[in-house]
């Protein structure tokens, strides 16, 4: 059930990317998609009543959630940070050149 919720959020992000005209909203759409995926990954590793996978002194490892998706998500967040930063920087530069965020007005390229 919660998986479907993530899918819905993912679809909302995709809708924003496809339908919106403002560049910033498109970037936000991509970020929404990304966070939906992050949540989905964490849910993949979830276990009923599991505890966080941290080893501490004098503790045995029992009934922990799967730590691997969390590690993957950390990497995916870093990649998302890089992509978002680059996208925002590009959007700022485009605004400098064109004076608008509307992608329908940014059309110097043919086709």
């Amino acid at each position: 059930m919660t998986y479907f919720l993530c899918m819905i959020i993912f679809a909302i992000g995709l809708y924003a990317v496809v339908a919106k005209r403002n560049m910033i909203k498109i970037i936000i759409g991509i970020m929404v998609m990304e966070y939906a995926l992050n949540m989905l990954f964490v849910l993949f590793g979830y276990r009923q009543g599991g505890r966080s996978p941290i080893l501490e002194k004098a503790q045995t490892i029992t009934n922990i959630v799967d730590p691997l998706p969390q590690a993957l998500i950390l990497t995916a967040i870093v990649i998302g940070l890089a992509t978002t930063a680059l996208m925002v920087a590009l959007a700022v530069r485009i605004y400098e050149k064109y004076g608008t965020f509307d992608i329908t007005k940014i059309r110097k390229l043919r086709g």
Binding site: A85, V88, A89, V92, R93, Y95, E96
Partner: peptide
């Protein structure tokens, strides 16, 4: 910093 400075120039 880069993004903030680029915004200021506009």
């Amino acid at each position: 910093i880069t993004i903030a400075l680029a915004g200021k120039e506009i």
